[in-house]
Nucleic acid binder design. Structure first.
Lengths: 107, 107
DNA sequence: ATTTAACATCGTAATATTGCAATATTAAAA
DNA sequence: TTTTAATATTGCAATATTACGATGTTAAAT
């Protein structure tokens, strides 16, 4: 098939998996790491920095935006992409909650 | 293309992305949650519990094993799949390290 | 008004993932 | 030893993802 059977899982499980999934590509990890080390973040820098075509970078940025991790602000003819601090922290808490509520009493 | 250009990223970026990727499927999230709430964990339970075919569950278990999160012990004609506590904790630390080292000084 | 620069979107090819039926494999039970 | 039960593996169809060239779009610069 190739299609994930989302309907058999809880919303929480689907949401959590979606977050992990978006983070599950080295380009997106690299983008987050790079942006976090800049003060100003312009997409064109990323194309040179990461080494993927402009269209590809743009797609990855879109996915990071889809889970609210990035804010994009128009700045002249450039875009200023920034990490959404609140979302970032909330995401970290969300993932830790998953790790902590999963008990380890097995075997 | 469809092929991730792993060679342009660091090993750390690829590894981290791989971990996120394995966790990025609701069935695998559900499996971890279910196993963690059991004392004994037998794959056949999972088939009924999760609602995917036995072959599919077996595949997902294999992926979780691939990042060391699950231990599989043969127990008669059943398998006892358990969360690897050390790996679990290490993984949580690894993800937190990613979140914490990513500075939030942008914009 | 044209040009240029910086993205975004579309279309498409290549590859990966998901899911399952069918078929091994393995070990206990009969 | 045959059967049964539990799980793994294989093969394949359907769908998703990745990547990029080509083409929009928008706003500053000329």
């Amino acid at each position: 098939m190739g299609i994930t059977k989302s309907q058999i899982f809880t919303e929480q499980q689907n949401d959590l998996a979606q977050l992990f999934k978006v983070l599950g590509h080295p380009a997106r990890v690299a983008i987050l790491q790079y942006i976090s080390n800049q003060n100003a973040c312009i997409c064109n820098d990323l194309v040179e920095e990461i080494g993927l075509a402009q269209a590809t970078i743009s797609q990855h940025l879109k996915e990071l935006k889809s889970i609210g991790l990035l804010n994009g602000e128009v700045e002249g003819k450039s875009m200023c992409y920034c990490i959404n601090i609140e979302r970032w922290t909330a995401l970290q808490k969300q993932l830790n909650a998953f790790f902590n509520t999963t008990k380890l009493n097995c075997c």
